[in-house]
Write a protein that binds this DNA or RNA. Structure first.
Lengths: 311, 311
DNA sequence: AAATCTGTTTGACAAAAGCAATTAAAAAAC
DNA sequence: GTTTTTTAATTGCTTTTGTCAAACAGATTT
């Protein structure tokens, strides 16, 4: 992939900036007679669940073997780690933190938290959240293992000001990017939202939002159009958050809501191009009840109707 | 301000993560026999436009005086900096980079850019942009001087899929937060967008967006409602970006567009509560042509109409 | 003019980190 | 089945980085 020079500049400047900041944030290490490298070793030893060896640390942390050896030795004399000889290979030792080592790490993290708190103290609560979000984004993009887990996702069932616009934004931009839909599609979504908002009634309508922090990353809704049938709409999960089961969770919530509100059936309109979605619908008991080829949103699409009986 | 423990955790983890990353990004320094501190001194000397002294560096970079003295000495013997005795104070020296020093800094930054490029290489272009945006946000929140400048803002006059939704989102959430409007307001915005999108015609309608990276942070539009008059709508600048003249710039662009399209007058509807906006309108030649007290969007508001003749 | 203060330098030293040689066990080659 | 080579870890030696306290010299105050 080609590299955007503007991005390179920003990353370099950020690095420069963060180097100064790190100085401040890592100051508490000195109080515990630990070097940054030593800390990293300690952390790695805790996080590495299967047996860790010196070689692994060298490879993972990129630190000199001799230096590491000395660090480990002092750890051992201070009873922060224990070594166990490998039965496979007489040269290697399995390393693990002792309770005392864990304890120290906790203390260190407490100290770190205090430094951080001091840094955050002058910031407003929104700014704090924005900061955490941005940092999470950075980590998420750069590291493979800082993957967002389903635990980070929360769900919300009230519609707050700004939500409708954001869902519309997600639909407009994502379908344009992923499926090539034109502006007419967003116009259509806009219309559906206008109709919905004008007649919003929580006894028959229900919106569900999947959130990451204060950011909407998935949506679904059931809209009671008659006494018997409810229409499912705005089913979407942001591509960065797919594969975490969020779609299934939203769908389940929506179906349950429809049942609770005593609707007899749910129907929805989608296109055959939405393979992931239609697969999920079928898996959840929906059946195709109609299809129609037609020019839509700048493309030639197959509109499909699905429905499910709830009783 | 109280500190959010979740945020503290994320910042700590981020710091932890970045410590490892910094190792990688700063590796090129060793090739030039420079310590991180030495680099910071060099950068500071370049960026500090007025004469820099050792004391200033100590205060700004938080580095030990003795250590700094030595760093500066080696810089001097390597002809990277030159010293000039102060006429005010015989103890202090004014320090500045020599051309050779500047040159070295450039080489270093080139090296840094290469490291960064390597890091960015596996990322997609959107991810790169998202990364830069997030880093900018972090710096922006944490440092006072990394303020966003007007230079970082670009303007766009085409309406892409997703834009309408995002503008609606901004209106809905910001007016709710800042003015206490309820969901009816977003419904209203949704209606205006639906009407607009259905009949969008670039010969009479024009949207302007202020962008920070790929994020919309301000908007305005003129919508030709008759042959003579055009309505101005969706005038908003995100609070984080106010005071940079973005509002004025948007307004000017909108008025110019209306003139170009040969409209004879512009009118707009706002509320008396929007003091910043109405002040700007008046400053730009708009005059109030009507007002009406009425319950709107959950509040008792004064709706105002402004207009300006273009010929 | 003496005392104090301030900006910078120097000396002594400790901690952090890197490099090369060494040891011992494992794997590969003969 | 022994020898050679490779690999994991350690040890000795060195450089670099950074800290602390004392010294110095010019400025400021008393």
């Amino acid at each position: 992939m080609s590299v955007n020079p503007e991005v390179v500049r920003e990353v370099s400047e950020f690095n420069n900036y963060y180097n100064s900041l790190a100085e401040l944030l890592n100051r508490h290490l000195a109080d515990n007679n630990l070097s940054l490298s030593a800390l990293r070793v300690l952390v790695k030893l805790r996080d590495e669940e299967d047996q860790c060896t010196a070689g692994k640390l060298i490879a993972n942390l990129g630190i000199d073997g001799g230096y590491l050896s000395r660090i480990l030795k002092t750890f051992e004399t201070n009873q922060l780690i224990s070594k166990r000889k490998s039965t496979m290979d007489g040269r290697t030792w399995y390393l693990q933190l002792t309770p005392k080592g864990r304890k120290l790490l906790e203390i260190l993290e407490e100290g770190s938290a205090q430094q951080v708190s001091q840094l955050l103290e002058p910031l407003g609560s929104e700014q704090q959240l924005a900061l955490a979000g941005a940092m999470k984004t950075v980590r998420h993009i750069l590291s493979d293992d800082a993957k967002i887990s389903a635990d980070d996702i929360t769900f919300r069932r009230d519609l707050q000001p700004g939500d409708a616009g954001f869902i519309m934004h997600m639909h407009g931009s994502l379908y344009a990017k992923e499926a090539g839909y034109n502006l007419e599609y967003e116009t259509h979504i806009c219309k559906t939202f206008y109709e919905f908002l004008e007649a919003y009634n929580s006894s028959k309508d229900q919106v569900f939002l999947a959130m990451h922090g204060n950011q909407i990353i998935g949506s679904i809704a059931v809209l009671g159009h008659s006494r018997y049938a409810t229409q499912m709409r705005w089913f979407l999960v942001h591509p960065d958050y797919r594969g975490l089961g969020i779609g299934q969770r939203l769908l389940t919530e929506a179906v349950n809501a429809a049942k609770e509100k005593l609707f007899q059936k749910i129907y929805l309109i989608t296109t055959a191009q939405q393979v992931a979605a239609t697969t999920l619908f079928k898996k959840n008991g929906f059946r195709k009840s109609g299809e129609k080829h037609m020019p839509m949103w700048g493309l030639q699409l197959t509109e499909e109707r699905y429905e499910i009986d709830l009783i």
